[in-house]
């Protein structure tokens, strides 16, 4: 137990806060603590969680990406257009195209950051503008509503009518989200590549001296985020049953906030899938709870913003002090190098 507290303090704090929040909401409203509502929250959060675990990998390796959400919009558009040209396609083709296009966009970022040595925030702000500008220019901002039937039809793995008449639905985005979480978790904690990503994010110079392939680290992390962004884009199109070119614009910062809330550190070397999921869920549960309590939807974002602001400043105060001084210095130096 002591070990668990030592190794995952952020995740545990977050879990405790989430549990407390849930308890409060269950007492405050009678509809919160129902299985149906829990599945609702999951359905709503699925796309963001997929983004978040992708972003996590980049954060662990010490980078940052601003472009992934608009990249996902590009993926949506390209994939749907390709599918329509192919005459419909199916889920397998859809996933392959979305995954490949997403990964390709991620690799462009990696190329800029590694080969051209542009630091990641500058490079991805640039590609953010390039992706979004080109997408809006080419599509003239026109949305696509005639998706292939299989993509626009809700795909429910499991449904069950509860005694009170509400429905539990386990939808495709949730299943895909769970698979993405498992895959990411396996990649970062069970494979040597994942451990190298942590090491590289933790101490880039040390990793270099141990002969870790720095190029590979960039291509793997940004490629992985690209893949996740592609999948998330496809899921978003499926969920919304339409492709709107600017639907995901601005999502990148919300996901970034939730991921960091979940314990991933800007600067690298730290973060877990569990934390990511909890970070996104905490935001969703707050919104869901406020909704059920009858709070005006216009007040949601303000309250969520205030909660994130409080959580981030509070956690920073605490964790900065936990870090030994020598290590803080080495972290700082590491950042400057990358």
């Amino acid at each position: 137990m002591r070990r668990l507290i030592q190794s995952k303090p952020t995740e545990l704090t977050l879990l405790a806060v989430t549990v407390l929040l849930c308890l409060g909401l269950s007492v405050g409203t009678d509809r919160f603590l129902t299985i149906a509502n829990a599945f609702d929250v999951l359905n709503v959060s699925a796309v963001n969680i997929i983004f978040a675990v992708g972003l996590l990998v980049v954060l662990i390796s010490g980078g940052i990406d601003i472009s992934f959400a608009v990249a996902a919009s590009v993926v949506q558009y390209v994939t749907v257009l390709a599918l329509l040209t192919l005459g419909g396609g199916n889920w397998a083709v859809g996933f392959i195209i979305a995954g490949c296009v997403g990964m390709g966009l991620g690799l462009i970022n990696a190329f800029l950051i590694y080969r051209l040595q542009i630091i990641s925030i500058v490079a991805t702000i640039s590609t953010f503008n390039v992706f979004f500008g080109l997408l809006m220019f080419v599509t003239k901002g026109v949305s696509i509503y005639n998706l292939p039937d299989w993509l626009a039809t809700r795909f429910v793995f499991f449904e069950h009518e509860m005694a009170d008449g509400s429905w539990i639905e386990l939808t495709l985005p949730v299943v895909v989200m769970i698979l993405c979480c498992i895959a990411t978790s396996f990649m970062i904690s069970r494979t040597t590549t994942g451990r190298k990503l942590y090491a590289f994010g933790d101490n880039p110079e040390g990793a270099r001296r141990f002969g870790i392939n720095i190029a590979a680290m960039h291509y793997v992390s940004f490629g992985w985020l690209g893949l996740m962004a592609g999948i998330a884009g496809l899921m978003q199109a499926h969920y919304a049953q339409e492709v709107v070119p600017n639907a995901l614009y601005g999502r990148e910062l919300d996901v970034l906030a939730a991921t960091v809330l979940g314990g991933a550190r800007l600067g690298g070397g730290k973060g877990s899938v569990l934390g990511c999921v909890l970070g996104v869920l905490l935001v969703s549960i707050t919104q869901n709870g406020l909704n059920l309590m009858g709070v005006s939807p216009f007040a949601f974002k303000m309250i969520v913003g205030a909660i994130i602001l409080a959580a981030i400043t509070l956690s920073s105060t605490r964790f900065d002090k936990l870090l030994p001084k020598a290590l803080q210095n080495s972290v700082r130096k590491g950042n400057h190098r990358s």
């Binding site: 190794s7 040390g206 972290v331």
Partner: peptide, 20 residues
Amino acid sequence: DLALFGEMSVAENISFQLAV
């Protein structure tokens, strides 16, 4: 500067070659 990895466990640091 030791070139160690602060967030990784003692075991992983010692057996870094095996870990990667």
